[in-house]
Every structure is written in C-alpha cells, then in structure tokens.
Amino acid sequence: MESWKVNLISIWFGCFFTGLSISQIIPFLPLYVEQLGVTDQQALPLWSGLIFSVTFIISAIVSPLWGSLADSKGRKLMLLRAASGMGLVIFLQAFVNNVWQLFALRALMGLTSGYIPNAMALVAAQVPRERSTWALSTVSTGQICGVIMGPLMGGLVADWIGLRAVFLLTAGLLLVTFFVTLFLIKESNFLPAKKGEKLSGRAVLRSLNNPMLMFSLFFSTLVIQLCNGSVSPILTLFVRQLAPGVENIAFISGMIAAIPGIAALLSASGLGKVGDRIGAQRILIAAMVLTVVLFVAMSQVNNTWQLGTLRFLLGFADGAMMPAVQALLLRFSNDQVTGRLFGYNQSFMYLGNVAGPLIGSAVSAVGGFRWVFLATAVVVLINLIQLTVSWRYRKRQPI
C-alpha cells in the first residue's frame, strides 16, 4: 500500500480518537463544576461558560505558533506534542479539588491543542493534489464520528463509574492516539524551513496569490463553527417549545442535536470525490447556499419532525464545507507556509466555537429562539457574498 494511504488510515484513527476524547468531556463539564462546589444557580452557568471557552480562546491565540513550528520542525512532531500534552492535562483534570484548578488546566489544555489541524496539514502535503478534497473529507469523517460517539460513551462511563472516570478514559484514548501517530504515521519528503528562510507574517501574506480570498476562507471556517454552535444553547428549549407535552424531551433534543453529524459522516467522503471532479469552490458555494436556505426554513418549523429533517439536510452541507475550505487553503498556498495557514485557520475555528454560543444566547434573549436561526442565516449569507467577491477578484489577478 502506498505510504500516503497508510498515513490517511492512521490519521483517520488519530482524529477519531481525538474527537472522541474531547467531545465526551464537554457535555458533563457543568456537572463536574457543580461537583467541585459551585452550586449557586447563577454562578454555575458562568463558571461552566468560562471553563468551556478558555480552552478555545487560548487555542486560537497559540495555533499560529504551532503552525509555524510545524513548517520548521515537522507535522508529525506537532501531532505527538498535541496527543501527549492533551492526554496529560486531561488526566490531571480527574484529580482537581476546586473550580480554579479545573479552570487553570482547561487553559493549559488550550496550549497543548492542535492535533487535528496538523493532521489535516500532513494529509494535504502528502496526498496527490487531484485527490486532496476526497482525502481531507475522509479524515474529517474520523473527527465527526468521534464527536458523535463521544457524548454517548462519556455518558455511559459517567453513569456507571463517575464523572472523574471520564477524564481517565479520555487520557487513555489520547495515549492510544500518541502511539498510533508514533508508530504508523510517516512524514516523508518534509523539508524544514531554515531559520533564515522562515517567513514573517507579512511575508506569508505576500507569498499568497490572493490574501483577500485567504481571509475569506478563514472567515468561512469561523462561520461554519458558528453555525454549529449558535443553536446549541437554545436547541433543547426550542424543542420543548415545539413539543410542550412530550416527556422524553432530553432524548429528542439529543437526537436532533446529533443528526447533522450523522448526515455529515455519511456524506463527507462522497462529497469530497465530487469536489475533486467539479472543484472545491463550487462545492463550498453550493453548501453555503443550502445552509442559508435551511436556517431560514428552520426558523419557520412547527414541529420537531420538521426541525429534525432540516437539521439532517444541514449535515450534508456541514460534511462538505470544512473539507472544501481546507482543500482551497491547500490549493492557494505553498508548502513553505501550509502549516502556518492551517494554524491561522484553526484559530478562526476556535473563535467560531466561542462566538457561536454567545451569539445564539444573545439573539434568543433579545428576539426569541426563531431569530437565532435567521441571524445565523444572515451571517452565512454575508460570508457567501464575501467569498464570491474575493473569488472574482482572484480571477482578475495576473497568473
């Protein structure tokens, strides 16, 4: 088997274990915060939000640094750093005695992040360019699958053994990720950037054919994560509003929350092949148009079946957008700055993780639940217009 195919399979499992590890903790953080002594009903959501957000904020700040190191030291080394660092920090979270210790470790966890963007960069650098969209889409299914299964596994462990055991299991899975990376992933043909040749931030921008398009793609990454997170704070409440007499509201809400991930898992690889044939740009534009239409339609639903069906269709757009963005980043960059650009892109992804829930909560407080869907549609529409303009501007540039 060709080395890039072995890498692709190994990285898929690495991303799967990473997605599984991170997602199985997040749904139970408020319960863990409460267990650590924060019982006031006003302080509990505040602390939960701070502890959730600090990881992404720190990650957004340091991701360009890890991307720069990846260009000079190698992506595999960054994968090993992220897997071992996150594993150790999450292991320590099982033994905290107060909420301040947990907050500090979650901030430290942000410093150790970066497995998935470096995995994507390694795949992008080694697969044949004509198969890049398919390869990146395939890797993304590993993360998606892990994110879907994580809360289920974490819930079972928390119910059977306890909340602290979830952190120990997560650390164990990241240890598996470390060994998969160490023994199975090979980084061939890597030429490290020498100190004198390492580009500054301005030089990175000057090396690009169209910086405006690159910033538009970064913003697209933020918007994609914002779409996923904007409805999270209000989804259960909106489902209860649609079905006030239903007793198993938690189960229905959980299914409606998870169903886009299932659709994305089923469609990502196939849409990646289509993107390789017709172009990632066309796939991205079409998926964004579909996203705008679906969010507008979701604001008008009258029952949970309509909401679930529309969110299932949204999963097809989710499965197409992020791999298309990454394929376009690869296409319009060069090997000397690929790691740096993927690091910048990851920063925007983390910012989207923070901005989405904040916007959703603020809009619902002012205008109600249905306005959250409309506001999200407007943000996607703005990004769609921006992408179209920057793409046409690129076409007018001299080749």
Results as ranks from 00 to 15, higher is better:
Leu184His: 13
Ile51Trp: 12
Arg370Asn: 12
Leu266Trp: 06
Pro323His: 03
Phe16Gly: 03
Gln326Val: 02
Thr376Pro: 04
Phe52Arg: 08
Leu191Ser: 13
Ala82Asp: 07
Glu197Ala: 05
Ile256Cys: 05
Ile185Arg: 02
Ser207Arg: 02
Gln346Gly: 04
Met153Arg: 00
Thr221Asp: 11
Leu208Gln: 11
Ser347His: 10
Thr181Gly: 07
Leu182Asn: 14
Pro192Arg: 09
Leu341Ala: 12
Gly172Met: 05
Thr138Met: 10
Gly308Thr: 13
Gly319Met: 06
Leu314His: 15
Lys198Ala: 12
Leu222Trp: 06
Ala362Asp: 02
Gly270Arg: 12
Gln93Thr: 07
Leu313Met: 13
Ala193Gly: 13
Met149Cys: 07
Ala375Tyr: 10
Lys195His: 09
Gln93Leu: 00
Leu205Ile: 11
Ser200Leu: 05
Leu80Val: 06
Leu169Pro: 08
Ala377Glu: 11
Phe369Val: 05
Ser347Ile: 11
Gly339Ser: 02
Val246Trp: 12
Tyr393Phe: 05
Met322Ser: 12
Phe103Leu: 09
Leu284Tyr: 12
Ser48Asn: 07
Gly261Tyr: 11
Phe316Met: 15
Lys198Arg: 15
Val139Ser: 06
Lys273Pro: 03
Leu36Thr: 15
Lys5Phe: 02
Ser216Pro: 04
Val289Met: 14
Val33Phe: 07
Ala286Arg: 05
Phe251Glu: 08
Leu222Gly: 00
Asn98Met: 03
Gln143Asn: 14
Leu102Gln: 06
Pro323Ile: 02
Ala317Leu: 06
Val204Gly: 00
Leu328Arg: 13
Pro30Gln: 10
Leu156Ser: 08
Leu152Phe: 14
Leu20Cys: 09
Leu80Gly: 05
Pro211Glu: 11
Phe190Pro: 01
Val54Met: 00
Ser113Ala: 15
Val354Met: 01
Met109Gly: 12
Trp134Leu: 02
Phe190Tyr: 06
Ala320Ile: 07
Ser63Met: 08
Glu34Asn: 13
Gly19Val: 07
Leu358Pro: 10
Leu330Gly: 14
Pro45Gly: 10
Gly110Trp: 10
Leu237Glu: 15
Leu307Thr: 15
Arg282Tyr: 06
Leu199Ala: 10
Trp391Glu: 12
Trp12Ala: 00
Gly110Tyr: 07
Gln42Ser: 10
Ala203Asn: 13
Arg129Ile: 02
Gly356Arg: 08
Ile11Phe: 01
Ala320Ser: 15
Asn302Gln: 13
Thr376Gln: 07
Ala125Ile: 06
Asn98Gln: 07
Gly367Asp: 15
Gln93Lys: 00
Leu284His: 06
Gly85Lys: 11
Ala165Cys: 10
Val301Pro: 00
Lys273Trp: 03
Phe95Val: 09
Pro151Ala: 08
Asn303Val: 04
Leu213Phe: 09
Arg331Asn: 08
Gln24Lys: 04
Gly155Asn: 11
Asn97Gln: 14
Ala203Met: 11
Phe215Tyr: 14
Phe17Gly: 01
Trp371Ile: 08
Arg164Trp: 01
Ala250Asn: 15
Met212Thr: 12
Ser21Lys: 04
Trp134Met: 09
Leu92Phe: 04
Pro128Tyr: 05
Gly315Arg: 13
Gly14Tyr: 04
Phe215Pro: 00
Gln101Trp: 03
Gly196Leu: 03
Ala125Phe: 04
Ala263Pro: 00
Leu105Ala: 12
Leu175Ala: 15
Ile26Met: 14
Thr141Gly: 02
Met212Asp: 04
Gly270Ile: 03
Ala362Lys: 10
Trp12Cys: 01
Leu205His: 01
Ser23Phe: 08
Gly49Val: 09
Ile116Phe: 06
Thr309Gly: 14
Ala70Leu: 03
